[in-house]
């Protein structure tokens, strides 16, 4: 598909759909928002500030309405939406979220109304050995509907679902290849880079790395908001003015907040027990989630190396550097 055809395709998508796409805002920041006109659409190597999770796993979501003792499920009402221009790194993040929330009716309600159009664009400064070079066979482990592989003067088009095929057929575009989703786990097994970092954290623990990070980190939680694979949430009830009615909600949480591990004390007035007391413990927990727990549970990378957390961090903590430090400590201890 050449550039002219592609512009027409974007116009075609915009005509009847709610298209969400990267675009610059008035402050010249690349954001993801509803696309109003084709010319606003940004397609390139820069990654938007926030990730696509905002549209699949909204920061606050109603789960139930209650009246008296009756809890009624409140699924989100979503109109069909198209994610246009999702970087391959973000596709990996979405594939992980799809796994984690496979039993979650709220996530699934939004997901089934979402079309994902990905691209092979990668940020210039990247740390992903696996995605640094795009190869066709990498697509079969990612969930998407349409994929645009960048090539000279345009895009090579792939489809990853019947929905994707239908869109292209209706647009009267035939020159695409279909890739059948083969599950999230690659034939060659776990991501090698991920395995090394996981091994470093689990078997070659270097306390100094975490003590240093603990001193720099200010526990603001911005990284957890920026991260495309941070998804933890808490649930809370909100009463309405009418007595006995209200809603049960969930909202994003952050493991950097003090209340994250809080359990009851011995009495209402007694101090609460918090299982993570220091910043070093919190930041270790965050890294452990991404580099140990997620790969351990889902056999998928818990970090897609997008670097958004580094960009968001006011204390200049660089996730790529931390990984280099973990790997260096591992190599050093291995040599001994």
């Amino acid at each position: 598909m050449n550039k002219t055809q592609f512009s027409k395709f974007v116009e075609y998508l915009l005509k009847n759909n709610n298209v969400i796409a990267p675009q610059y805002n008035v402050e010249a920041k690349l954001i993801i928002a509803e696309l109003k006109k084709t010319s606003d659409f940004y397609m390139g190597t820069e990654l938007p500030l926030d990730s696509w999770k905002w549209f699949l796993l909204p920061p606050k979501q109603k789960m139930f309405d209650y009246k008296g003792e009756k809890m009624t499920e409140a699924l989100p009402s979503v109109k069909k939406q198209i994610f246009l221009g999702v970087s391959i790194l973000d596709m990996q993040a979405l594939t992980l979220l799809n796994q984690i929330f496979e039993q979650d009716p709220y996530y699934q309600e939004i997901k089934k109304n979402t079309i994902i159009i990905g691209t092979s664009h990668m940020p210039k400064d990247n740390f992903s050995e696996y995605f640094a070079k795009f190869e066709e066979n990498k697509l079969e482990h990612l969930q998407f509907d349409i994929f645009l592989a960048v090539q000279n003067g345009g895009y090579k088009i792939y489809t990853g679902s019947e929905d994707g095929q239908r869109f292209l057929d209706n647009f009267k575009y035939k020159d695409y290849k279909h890739v059948e989703y083969a599950g999230p786990i690659r034939e060659e097994g776990l991501d090698l880079q991920m395995v090394s970092v996981m091994d470093g954290m689990q078997n070659f623990h270097d306390q100094k790395i975490w003590d240093d990070l603990g001193k720099r980190c200010i526990s603001c939680g911005k990284c957890t908001i920026a991260c495309p694979t941070c998804f933890c949430f808490r649930m809370f009830d909100k009463s309405h003015l009418e007595q006995g009615s209200g809603e049960r909600n969930r909202c994003w949480d952050s493991c950097f907040y003090n209340e994250f591990t809080q359990v009851a004390g011995v009495a209402p007035s007694a101090p609460k027990h918090r299982l993570m007391a220091t910043t070093a413990q919190k930041i270790y927990f965050w890294y452990e989630h991404h580099f140990v727990r997620t790969p351990g549970t889902y056999s998928l990378p818990g970090c897609v190396e997008c670097g958004r957390c580094t960009r968001a961090c006011p204390a200049d903590i660089d996730i790529f550097q931390t990984q280099r430090d973990i790997l260096a400590a591992r190599n050093k201890k291995k040599e001994k």
Binding site: F101, D253, T261, L275
Partner: peptide, 13 residues
């Protein structure tokens, strides 16, 4: 004993 929200291994607490 831990803080729990989802009870299904998702919420991370």
């Amino acid at each position: 004993e831990r803080h729990m929200d989802c009870a299904q291994g998702v919420c991370q607490h």
